[in-house]
């Protein structure tokens, strides 16, 4: 499959229309001079990746991404940034000291993922050939049944771990109140 063949497919235009903003947004997340801007670029990157999942007919995953990551995680990010400090304008020193190791780690993850995916696609067909699943939606029902049949134990285990993390988080964040403060809290 040549590049001109590839670009002739309308679905690939859609892919580019989402992938390019996604990459740009992902870069801006780490280069942006403003925390809130960075978080908003994260929204754009996540939205674009949700779009990519839709292209892959993984509707459910796409909307989970939107609901959980955009709707909850980034909103919480923004909420946290704004409730503590939310400067408008550039900030001079946003970069963390460990940015180069972090970049190296990110590149490493990218390389490994690329190598894995490339290996899989090589087995199925040439690079750029459509994956067999593309175009056929994974029914959400099958996902659901998978969760409570074949993958029940991992599912429950993950749920248990999350619950433990939640309780741990509350315990850490909770300030021990003096009796007077507790009364105060009860009054309010």
């Amino acid at each position: 499959m040549t590049f001109s063949d590839w670009i002739a497919e309308p679905v690939n235009w859609a892919f580019l229309a989402m992938a390019i903003p996604m990459v740009v947004a992902a870069l801006r997340v780490v280069t942006s001079r403003n925390v809130v801007h960075a978080a908003l670029f994260l929204v754009l990157a996540l939205a674009a990746s949700a779009g990519l999942f839709i292209l892959l007919s993984a509707e459910f995953v796409a909307w989970v991404l939107v609901l959980v990551y955009i709707g909850a995680v980034v909103v919480l990010f923004l909420f946290g940034i704004m409730i503590t400090r939310a400067p408008i304008g550039r900030e001079t020193n946003l970069s963390h000291d460990t940015r180069w190791p972090a970049a190296a780690a990110a590149l490493g993850v990218f390389a490994v993922t690329f190598w894995l995916i490339n290996g899989v696609t090589q087995q199925i067909g040439g690079f750029g050939d459509p994956l067999p699943a593309v175009g056929r939606a994974t029914p959400t029902g099958i996902l659901g049944e998978g969760f409570i049949n074949r993958y029940l134990i991992p599912f429950e285990a993950v749920g248990f771990v999350l619950l433990a993390a939640l309780i741990g988080g509350i315990t850490l964040a909770r300030k021990d109140l003096t009796p007077a403060e507790e009364e105060e809290g009860a009054r309010v």
Partner: peptide, 14 residues
Amino acid sequence: LEVGIFYALAISSV
């Protein structure tokens, strides 16, 4: 959409 209501709840958070 197959996930219709789920979509609605997700998109409303935008």
